[in-house]
Deep mutational scan, measured.
Amino acid sequence: MSIQHFRVALIPFFAAFCLPVFAHPETLVKVKDAEDQLGARVGYIELDLNSGKILESFRPEERFPMMSTFKVLLCGAVLSRVDAGQEQLGRRIHYSQNDLVKYSPVTEKHLTDGMTVRELCSAAITMSDNTAANLLLTTIGGPKELTAFLHNMGDHVTRLDRWEPELNEAIPNDERDTTMPAAMATTLRKLLTGELLTLASRQQLIDWMEADKVAGPLLRSALPAGWFIADKSGASERGSRGIIAALGPDGKPSRIVVIYTTGSQATMDERNRQIAEIGASLIKHW
């Protein structure tokens, strides 16, 4: 058993032996400061991975655009179909130039040979490839079927209504393609630790998130040596930015963190910096 498999397999085991986890309101002070700095709403939640207890939250039940963070949920739905014998990670999917949409750094290189379902999930999560996400959405029946999958998990909040890139429109008060921090954190925890997916599929999902290559300026920039993080970021119109993550010290995840912001006029660099500073406060007061 690899170190990674050891880590995921023991998450339920550690729940019975973990020390009490204490919240630190200092992080919420930073979240509120980020709102002031960005001139935008910020949603935040910090969840204990083992118990599911909410440690801190700010606007946990307000809607925010999901942006590309939905791609983790999408690959969770794909893995659920794999577990049920309805899909194979090794199945190759062929597509054409007409299928390519904006920001497809991986799929645009494989027009001649296509990509496997496994490769598409990797591209969608680690590189946020939009065509990969659309191709995967097609395999499960489209955005409405992803919403149905989430409903069956008990998440009646999170919804996907459109495809890439239209889902990134982020119109104020538009509930399409949105979630709430509390709903996203709970759903992510179920995917990573619950019985919905097999152990192998849970491991695969967290491996893809751990290999994320496009979230460096966010929480990863504040991470001390030896800490673990598996994450997925997102960005969209109207100053929207977000990240969902499982992270913790000693090389294993122990908390879920979800951060969303929307409605800012700030630059992408400034949005990144504010999220990184929230992460730094979280780690300092861990």
Rank of each mutant, 00 (worst) to 15 (best):
V82D: 03
K190N: 13
Q204H: 11
Q265G: 14
N168L: 00
M180Q: 14
K213R: 12
N168C: 04
R176A: 06
V21R: 15
T178F: 02
I125Q: 00
L47M: 15
K53Q: 13
S128G: 00
S221D: 09
K232H: 03
L135G: 05
D250G: 14
T187A: 05
I256L: 08
K30T: 09
F228R: 05
T27A: 04
V257I: 13
A200K: 14
I140N: 00
V72I: 07
N173Q: 10
A246L: 14
K53Y: 10
V101I: 14
A235R: 00
A222M: 10
S57Q: 13
E169G: 07
D250H: 13
L247S: 02
H156N: 09
L38E: 06
G194D: 10
R189A: 09
G90P: 08
Q204E: 11
S57Y: 08
L205V: 04
V82A: 10
E175W: 09
T187P: 02
R81T: 05
T262I: 07
S236T: 09
A124S: 09
N152T: 14
Q265K: 12
V257M: 05
L19F: 15
P172R: 09
S254N: 09
A9S: 15
L167A: 06
A211T: 08
E56W: 00
S68V: 00
R91L: 03
F70L: 01
T187N: 10
R202V: 06
G90F: 11
N134G: 00
E87H: 00
R59A: 05
W163V: 08
A266I: 07
G43M: 00
E169Q: 11
L79W: 02
V8G: 11
E119T: 05
S122W: 11
K144F: 08
T138H: 14
L247D: 00
T131N: 02
Q97H: 14
I283H: 04
G239D: 06
H5D: 12
K213H: 10
E270A: 10
H5T: 07
E108S: 15
E169I: 08
P172W: 09
D269K: 11
T138P: 02
H94A: 10
R159H: 12
R92S: 08
G279R: 03
Q4K: 15
A170D: 08
H24A: 10
S221A: 15
A222W: 07
L74P: 02
L219Y: 00
N272S: 06
D269F: 10
L100K: 04
A215T: 08
W163D: 05
S254K: 11
P224R: 04
E277G: 08
G85K: 11
W163C: 08
D212Q: 10
W227S: 02
Q265S: 14
I206K: 09
I54R: 07
D161H: 03
A15S: 15
A170H: 14
P20F: 03
V157A: 11
G43Q: 02
V106I: 12
L47G: 02
D177E: 01
E145Q: 14
T178D: 01
H94C: 10
H110L: 07
A200D: 15
P217V: 08
L136S: 00
V21L: 09
L55Y: 08
L219T: 01
I11T: 11
R176S: 09
N173A: 10
N173R: 09
G141R: 04
D269Q: 12
P12A: 14
Q37T: 15
A185C: 04
V82Y: 06
G242S: 06
T267F: 06
A215G: 10
V29M: 10
R255H: 03
A9R: 10
A215K: 05
K232M: 02
S221N: 12
A266Y: 07
G234A: 02
E145H: 12
L218F: 02
L167Q: 03
Q204P: 13
T186P: 06
R238H: 15
A200E: 15
A183M: 09
